[in-house]
Design a protein around this nucleic acid. Sequence first.
DNA 1: TCTCTGCTCAC
DNA 2: CAAGTGAGCAGAGAC
Length: 445
Amino acid sequence: MADIPPEEVVNYACEDADITLRLADVFEARMPAGSPERHILEEVEMPLVPVLADMEMEGVRLDVDVLGAMAEGLKEDLRKLTESIQAHAGVPFSIDSPRQLGEVLFDHLAITDKAKKTKTGQYATGEDVLQKLVDTHPIVAEVLEYRQLNKLLSTYVRPLPELVDPETGRIHTQYMQAVAATGRLSSTQPNLQNIPIRTKRGREIRKAFVPRDANHVLLAADYSQVELRIVAALSGDRGLCTAFLEGADIHTATAAKVFGVPAEEVDRGQRSQAKAVNFGILYGQGAFGLAETLKIPRREAKGIIEAYFAEFADLKAYQTRVVEEAKENGYVETVLGRKRWLPDITSANAVVRGFAERNAINAPIQGSAADIIKIAMVHIHRALDEGGFKARMILQVHDELVFDVPTDEVEAVRELVCSHMERAVELAVPLEVEAQTGQDWLEAH
DNA sequence: TCTCTGCTCAC
DNA sequence: CAAGTGAGCAGAGAC
């Protein structure tokens, strides 16, 4: 081994021997030519590196005045809420401290005699816990609102303007390519993959994400129901596949089957329940979790899940199969053959094993969605370059891509982006993409 | 200064 | 016991 340059060698220190191997041999053994791993490395992950680098360097412009105005409003509302919460409590305390808040609510004010504890023994004061206690005392609703507004101020509105690069005037996130166990990207410094959208107040933050100048717009393109389409394709479930092939509203179609009524007669409540079941399926949720989400008795949740799997029997069989395969092989795979190893799948501990089983169900779905959008990103980046477009890909949020586009390129880029996203892979069901433009990220949704 | 905990934002 | 993947913030305590 003396003739191998040191940078081409890996050393293993074992109990009673030092083993030296050629790096190239280790690589060939771990990623043999023609293997799915090698394909993912060479055709997806490596080509994605310069794409992500370009996105990071390009950055996204932030209108700091929008956030400045929001900050003033939030501070004033938080001041009033703090005053009122302290008055209800009767003692000064830090609302930001879950421990102090728990003591105020459950010892001092004693708003319930059934307080829940966390695993470390302190009072649980999470959103779901407080939501159930909202009628016991006026302080509870105020704490919930305080938490929501303080989250917006402390995580987004205050820090984001600080992260604008003085050179470019833009925010430059970092995409982490080898962090998430499923193959997803993550985003840090700042995380631009969790900018609020759910609440009215939070959504406003998206108005601060703007195109580079007056001659550009933001174009946001997102996959419609991509994970449910993937689960339909992977399971080959006839009911699910047919619904997607017919272009049906998937939650309405699901409700029609589960509740045994024609699609036209599905009401809002039934659709919303079916939607919750569909999402739960992606994570391996059980009756307990569904009951919690829908705020219905467990018995009822169990009935809904049973009706669901009676209708979508191929899906049930698929989930059973994927867990069995995980036990057999020690891993599960995405559409591209990306593996997630699950050593806990054979654990004797039912809690630990249950976790691994839900990972076995979820990872192929979440990971396949990651595979698909990564392929689309590589193709789109190449097509924009080859087409001589000035449009730039600037953000990825798991099932969504955002572009900064000159106004005269909008229609061509929209077509290019949608077409590459929809054709990234060929599945047994169509992939659909919705694209919208706007003068800010909120408007583009 | 570092790490852990609890909480909450996104998909 | 119970719903997957992440990141960031403030509090609290160890060092």
